[in-house]
Design a protein around this nucleic acid. Sequence first.
DNA 1: CGAAACGTTGACCGTTTTCAATTACAGTGG
DNA 2: CCACTGTAATTGAAAACGGTCAACGTTTCG
Lengths: 196, 196
Amino acid sequence: MNSSTFRFAAGLPQRSHRLDANECLFVAGQRATRLFYVRKGAIRLVRTLENGANAVMHVARAHEWVAEASLFSDKYHCDAFADEPTTLVSLSKQSLIEHFESNGKSAVEFARMLASQLRALRQMHEIVRARRADDRVLTWLQLRAAGEPPALVLDRTWTQVADELALTREALYRALARLRRNGRARIDGRHVVLQR
Amino acid sequence: MNSSTFRFAAGLPQRSHRLDANECLFVAGQRATRLFYVRKGAIRLVRTLENGANAVMHVARAHEWVAEASLFSDKYHCDAFADEPTTLVSLSKQSLIEHFESNGKSAVEFARMLASQLRALRQMHEIVRARRADDRVLTWLQLRAAGEPPALVLDRTWTQVADELALTREALYRALARLRRNGRARIDGRHVVLQR
DNA sequence: CGAAACGTTGACCGTTTTCAATTACAGTGG
DNA sequence: CCACTGTAATTGAAAACGGTCAACGTTTCG
C-alpha cells in the first residue's frame, strides 16, 4: 500500500490540501471530480444510513488513497472528514482516466495498487471474522513474523493493533498474556518472537 | 462484482477447467502463470501459516476472479481448493497484462472491477468489526434496503447471511427476533421492512 | 420418500466488554 | 528541573453477549 506512490500519475497536475481535525473533505452526493491521496493524517469515510445512523466505511491513513472507487463513479457515496490535522494532494479524475486510457502501463500500475490493497484487506477481514481473541492475535502475528524462529518488531502501539483487530486493548493484553503463559510467544515491549 | 465479466478480456485465448469438490487448483509457491475466473461453484483460498494452522483468506464464488492479486506476483501465495464441483476459465497472465498495457481502456475496466470489490469488502469489513450482533444485522440490512420505508427481499438464506456477518445462525435469528420485538423491522421470511 | 439443510427458540457456558484502578512514560509549561 | 497532563500498558471483577448444544418443525432436493 505504501507502494501506492505517484508512479502512475507522474507529470499530472496536482493540488495540495490541508484540513483541521473534523473538517470536511467532501459529502455524499457531491460530484466527484478529484481523487485524493493522504500525505499525513487520516480521512474517515462515513456513510449515513437511512435511519440517520452512521457507518464508518473506511479510514484512509498516510500514503493511502481516499475512495479510489470514486474514480469510477460520478458522485461520492460517503462523507469524508479529517480524523486529525491532515494534508492531502489531489488529481483531476478526468485527466487521470485519460492518462490511464492512453497509457496502459500506468493503468496497470494503478490496478496493481488496488489488487494489493484488496489482498491486504482480505487478510484483515478473515482475521476479524475469527471469534476468539487469541486466534486473531496469533494469526496477525504469524502473518507479520519472518525468520527462524518467526519474529517481528511492532511499528505501532499495541492499542492501535487492538483497534485493527477489532478488540478492546484489554482483550488484546489478556490474549498476549495467555500466549506468553502458554509458551506460544515471547513478548517484550514491541518485540515478539513466536515459539515452536 | 458481477460486472466483472470478460469485457476487458474479449478475444484473448481462454481455457476451461473443471474441479471436483476439494480438488486442488494450485498451491502456494507454484508459479502463477494464469488467472482464473469462476463460472460455477466456489474456490477457497487458504494460507498455511508457519505453525501449520490454516487461515481461509477468501472464497471466490461464481462470477468472481480467483486471486486477482496473483496477476501481479510471480507465485501464488495461497493454496486454492474447490469448495464444491466447480468450473472455471483461465487466461494467460502474460497475454492479459500485454493486452492491458497496450489497451488502456481494458486496463481501466479491470481497475474498475478491483475498485468495486474493494469498496464492497470495506463495507463488509466495517460491519464485521462491530461487536454486537444487532449492529451488524441492522447495518447490513440498512445498506441493502431501498425505498420509503426502506425494504428489501433477501436473495439468499438467512444462514448464508449469518456466515457473511461472521455470526452463528442462532445469533442471527435472535438478533432478528429482537429487531422485530423492538419494532425496528418487520420480517416475514425473506421480506424485510425497516421501521422508523 | 427420506435425508439434508433451513428456520427457530431455550438453557447454559465461555469469552469479551465494561468499569475501575495502578504503573510507567513522554511531552509541556512554569 | 519538576510538577502536570495525557496516553500506553496492565490486571482484576462483574456484567453482557455470542457460542454451543439440544430439540423440533419445515422446506428443499435428489
